[in-house]
């Protein structure tokens, strides 16, 4: 029941409530639709200009306020339409909405992680992981340098727009580097994959500053990578 996740617990309970009167139930459901969870743009833990000179304040502001906001807006819109379609048992619309949900919902998920993956230098951005994640990186990739090289190479080679990830495969208990197209979240590459670090390689992420030179953006971004966040996720997910 994938639809379940789309409702807040409160909404779900009221919809699943066994109402003997179908008309009343119908009214209840449509009133309850206002309770549909509305996603909002998360705040950044730092100022737009705090990642300069690696990422300009202008890029950060557009990226957060415009791009991420648009994914959030369109995700909410699609969820509302989905809610209506499911309510009307309109299967063709329900299925048709999946693309918009995957794209906009994926955009929201990915960017929410991305902001946490970054930190200003004075707040620890770029400081290499020295804990269990650091060990795991050495074990799986040889060294942090080797991992960075691998991510940069895969990110640069990605055609069109997408993301390059460092993920944890919870089942195989190993670290993986993966790329996803467009706004596909990492989980589309395998249900047991958890994102530790995602780098946005859409042109909007670097174009105003790096123009066509994506490799330079990738080379520089490591100076503001928040390994502390990746380590926390790793600790939590691998225990």
């Amino acid at each position: 029941m994938a639809i379940r996740t789309l409702f807040t617990r409160k909404t779900l309970t009221s919809i699943l409530r066994n109402d003997p009167n179908p008309i009343v139930a119908g009214i209840a459901a449509s009133t309850q639709s206002r309770d549909l969870h509305v996603f909002t743009l998360p705040d950044l833990a730092y100022d737009y200009g705090a990642l300069e000179p690696v990422i300009s304040g202008e890029i950060m502001q557009l990226h957060h306020q415009k791009h991420h906001q648009t994914y959030v807006t369109n995700y909410n819109k699609a969820l509302e339409q989905l809610h209506d379609a499911v309510g009307k048992a309109d299967s063709s619309t329900t299925v048709k909405l999946q693309n918009a949900i995957k794209f906009n919902g994926g955009g929201h998920i990915n960017h929410s992680i991305f902001w946490k993956n970054l930190a200003p230098v004075r707040e620890g951005g770029g400081e290499p992981p020295r804990d269990s994640l650091g060990w795991a990186i050495d074990t799986h990739f040889g060294s942090l340098e080797a991992l960075i090289q691998k991510i940069n190479a895969e990110g640069a080679a990605l055609q069109g727009s997408g993301w390059v990830w460092l993920g944890l495969d919870k089942e195989l208990k190993r670290l993986v580097v993966e790329t996803t197209a467009n706004q596909d979240p990492l989980v589309t590459k395998g249900p047991s994959l958890v994102p530790l670090l995602g780098i946005d390689v859409w042109e909007h992420a670097y174009y105003l500053q790096y123009k066509n030179v994506r490799p330079d953006y990738l080379k520089n971004i490591w100076k503001v990578i928040n390994w502390k966040y990746a380590s926390e996720v790793y600790e939590k997910e691998s225990s």
Partner: peptide, 11 residues
């Protein structure tokens, strides 16, 4: 592709 319009129209 974003490079086609980003410098002139951004998002």
């Amino acid at each position: 592709l974003e490079h086609a319009y980003y410098l002139d129209y951004q998002n």
